[in-house]
Design a protein around this nucleic acid. Structure first.
Lengths: 353, 353
DNA sequence: CTGAAAGCGCTTACAG
DNA sequence: CTGAAAGCGCTTACAG
């Protein structure tokens, strides 16, 4: 069934059928109704490729989940507490707006080729990148494709410095710095002076922001940073557990720890528990992301809530906006991250003698 | 950059360029090399829509996640312990074979329209359906589209009864019945006689199989089924918790429970814990699915392992096979589910006096 | 308001 | 071995 067939059946030309389908204003109601009736009757659907080829949109958004580091650990990207909600929200939002989502995972630098192809082969109207590490070369290549692109979690200053702030590009971040400061201020307000950190990858925007905010807040209050309390957890449960074990065995430990994500925070609590160290009484813990699980563990995890859903929604909306216009535009959005106080952060510390 | 441009640059015709791209045998190495060089140089990628329109494959597989029941509960389909690994495995397998994955979620019966459109608009070479409930009408409609279709977790007898076992269709199941029997036999072997069940949706293939196997095994051993021990948990944590609470408050309870999925099993353990009832000492629990979390809880959950990864991989492979041939074929695959014994199922019961 | 025609960028018989 | 031409199924100026 092609538009030609519908045209014959309705006694009009293909042109008119096309006009009806695309909702052109200059078609009389009567003609429109006639054509629509035939379309309904035969469950006709215009071939998406022919439409796209003739210059229409593809109504498809690309979603590229990037996981360059975690490859050896079994590739659980879609079961990851960070990626899964993104996929969820992007697909939901896009679907609700009538778009399909084309997914491809990037496990290696070569896989970016597939991302480029998706654009070059015109499979998508635009694409969303999530999980990218600091890698301005890749960003440059992608921006040069000159198609609507949204990057989640990337350093804007770098993009501006590299003059990539033109073309169809939007960057969406969360206010990780502010959220971390809020968490740190809270711990300090409780009386903590020895505060450690479980860090995430520093070559990631959020990893860097969270670390910098930790350092800055400590400095601001004149609190010394003990290097042996700053642990490289790589955003991973396993690494965090290993580092925590080392810390505990060293005999010296802080009274509180800020973890750059909840997976690490939860892992830390587990390790402490195994060693008979009580959370929050003997060590206060605050995580980041506020994953689902955070409110269901014992003790319930205090955490900085990442506005994942809003970010995903905004990403889809940006793509759609950019598709609608030929104007080049660079835009950026930074959504607030809010501290959720639960049990793991504990109460005020007793005054020191 | 179009094939025409490449042709000019290489000093050949579009036909030849196309032959090179599609690896036709009758192109001399020399010509081939010449064309390939230009293609490389200009990073040329053939327009996917034009190719598809001219009769080539789309190199895209549809993945349709269906969640008709859980809508009100916040639509966490991609964070669900059942769906997420499927998405993961399908995307990975498809990507590895050079296919993109087009995703659309189905939250309502109307959303199936989008699934049909994806086929009708020729956006995909074939599609995979996961999470479908018993609904032969939908299956019929989809099969009639006459495109490669793989259904995960569906009753084959129904498909055969309805004469849908022709056309490009494959059904992939796990041996839920056998897996459940194994779990039940294990509990009975431990000495349990009062065994309850937390059921999943019975209008789901796996929900039905797991329930039937429970009943059959009880009957086989001449053990009475106490209706008040058969709980409707709807595959959901919340429902399972509510039902377990009711059960406990009733004052009478079985010595063991088999749960149709791990979410419910874990939820049951939590509730029992809150009531000070020890697992496995006072109640043995076995779940189904063997989700990631199962081996990390306290106590570690015994569970029947669903061969999720193999199923997803098989699904993608089936699609690809069907795309490759014009022959109609119906095939089915049933992968084994294996009992993983951990702590929650406990030890042998003491002999009754 | 509407039809004939050109064009989107490929593939593939067809002919040589 | 290779090119000219038709065709895939749409959209959209163009002309009337």
């Amino acid at each position: 069934m092609r538009s030609e067939d519908i045209a014959k059946l309705a006694g009009v030309s293909r042109s008119t059928v096309s006009r009806v389908i695309n909702n052109y204003p200059n078609v009389p109601e009567e003609t429109k109704a006639k054509v629509l009736k035939v379309i309904e009757e035969y469950h006709y659907e215009p071939n998406s490729f022919a439409r796209a080829l003739a210059g229409k949109r593809t109504d498809t958004i690309g979603l590229f989940a990037i996981s360059l580091s975690g490859k050896e650990q079994g590739n659980r990207i879609y079961q990851n507490n960070y990626f899964a909600p993104f996929v969820e929200a992007v697909v939901d939002t896009a679907n609700a707006k009538g778009f399909y989502v084309l997914i491809h995972t990037v496990y290696s630098r070569e896989d970016f080729q597939k991302v480029k192809q998706a654009f070059l082969q015109k499979r998508i109207d635009g694409g969303i990148l999530v999980g990218i590490q600091k890698d301005i070369e890749i960003v440059r290549e992608l921006v040069q494709l000159n198609a609507p692109l949204v990057i989640i979690d990337y350093d804007i200053t770098e993009i501006i410095a590299e003059r990539l702030d033109k073309g169809h590009l939007a960057v969406i971040n969360s206010k990780d710095y502010d959220g971390t400061v809020e968490a740190m201020e809270y711990l300090i307000g409780l009386g903590h002076r020895d505060i450690g950190m479980l860090c995430g990858e520093r070559n990631t925007y959020s990893g860097k922001e969270r670390y910098t905010a930790y350092v800055d807040t400590m400095n601001k209050h004149g609190l010394p940073i003990n290097d042996s309390y700053v642990l490289e957890g790589h955003f991973s449960k396993e690494c965090a557990a290993a580092e925590m074990n080392k810390l505990i065995e060293s005999g010296e430990r802080p009274t509180a720890m800020f973890a750059a994500n909840d997976d690490m925070a939860l892992s830390a609590i587990e390790v402490l528990h195994e060693h008979g160290i009580s959370v929050p009484d003997e060590m206060a813990i605050i995580g980041f992301d506020d994953i689902d699980l955070a409110s269901r563990t014992v003790p319930k995890l205090s955490s900085v809530k990442l506005p994942l859903y809003d970010m995903s929604k905004a990403a889809v909306q940006k793509i759609i906006n950019m598709v609608g216009t030929t104007d080049l535009s660079f835009s950026t959005l930074s959504l607030p991250a809010e501290l959720m106080i639960r049990d793991s952060s504990g109460k005020s510390l007793p005054e020191k003698p």
